[in-house]
Design a protein around this nucleic acid. Structure first.
Length: 290
DNA sequence: ACAATATCCTGCGAGC
DNA sequence: TGCTCGCAGGATATTG
């Protein structure tokens, strides 16, 4: 599922591929993906002839800033990922024109396809159809309450340890706090597990009971792990692919996530899986003792 | 005021 | 073999 490193990987891919391109047309077989405007014909009409001027990431959101003060926001949610290439529609199914990564089964679930002015396409593959796409007036998006509520970017230069401490709530289970987009933007289930494994902190630990030293460790591990994952183009443990359709390499580095029942690389203990806030949490019972 | 739960989806693997 | 069932999960809505 795309978290900050995966979304950043997509963002960088888009910068290479779609910057300065213009939207020509759009197709979907699942109109519900388009949340704004609700009417698909209106969406299509508003998007037509808009040029992509810049690409941004905010938390797990991708934002394409367009000409005429418009912005296209894409949230890939669980299984969505944007792809760039050439396909043709054959009896309701999109087939890649060339052999290569785009033929990967995880890239087959195209529910939204944009035509660009160079003849190529930008597509959203989304197995579970949770992804959302919204077309905004840029200034309305910046003023939107939901959007403004997003917490700070963990990898921004200005996000130092003092700032990290300042934005933390008074109490709460550390895993849930790290995953709360309104506290810090971009961390999800995979990286929260990996960060807490790294610092030997139990996912249910109440942040009120964490020492300054341990908070600092969590802060640094967050930076290190997110940066390392971006370098490796993210984690593809189930469905994530970059815009060329290729897998990320960070899945090989996972030490906790989806390793339930396996041996801990650090102490040889067994990795546990429990539910924290309705989500699966993976950790080593033996060495994540703080 | 807050926290737990349901909702949206569908491929996959387990179990019968 | 082939069916049903439960699970996975980000963010939001709804219920407790």
């Amino acid at each position: 599922m795309p978290e900050l490193p995966e979304v950043e990987t997509i963002k960088r891919g888009l910068e290479q591929r779609v910057l300065k391109r213009t939207f020509v047309d759009v197709w979907t077989d699942f109109k519900k993906t388009i949340k704004r405007p609700k009417n698909f014909e209106q969406f299509k009409k508003s998007l037509k002839d808009k040029r992509i001027q810049s690409v941004r990431r905010r938390g797990k959101n991708i934002i394409l800033d367009l000409s005429q003060g418009m912005s296209l926001l894409v949230h890939q949610k669980l299984t969505g990922h944007l792809l760039y290439g050439k396909w043709r529609l054959k009896s309701g199914k999109w087939l890649p024109l060339e052999k290569g990564p785009l033929t990967d089964p995880m890239n087959r679930f195209l529910h939204l396809v944009f035509w660009l002015d160079n003849g190529d396409q930008l597509a959203l593959s989304d197995l579970r159809k949770f992804a959302k796409v919204e077309l905004w007036k840029t200034e309305d998006l910046e003023r939107d309450e939901e959007f403004k509520k997003l917490g700070p970017e963990p990898l921004e230069r200005s996000f130092d340890f003092e700032k990290f401490k300042a934005i933390l709530p008074k109490k709460g289970k550390i895993k849930q706090v790290l995953m709360d987009q309104n506290v810090i933007a971009g961390i999800g289930n995979i990286y929260s597990d990996e960060i807490l494994f790294e610092v030997r902190v139990h996912p249910e630990k109440d942040i009120a009971k964490l020492s300054e030293k341990n908070l600092e460790k969590i802060y640094s591990a967050t930076q290190d792990i997110l940066k390392k994952a971006i370098k490796l183009k993210g984690t593809s443990i189930s469905d994530f692919r970059d815009i060329e359709g290729k897998k990320g390499l960070f899945e090989k580095k996972l030490k906790a996530y989806r390793r339930a029942g396996k041996q801990c690389f650090r102490c040889g203990g067994v990795i546990q899986r429990i539910k924290v806030g309705g989500r699966s949490a993976h950790f080593c019972l033996k060495c994540q003792v703080i």
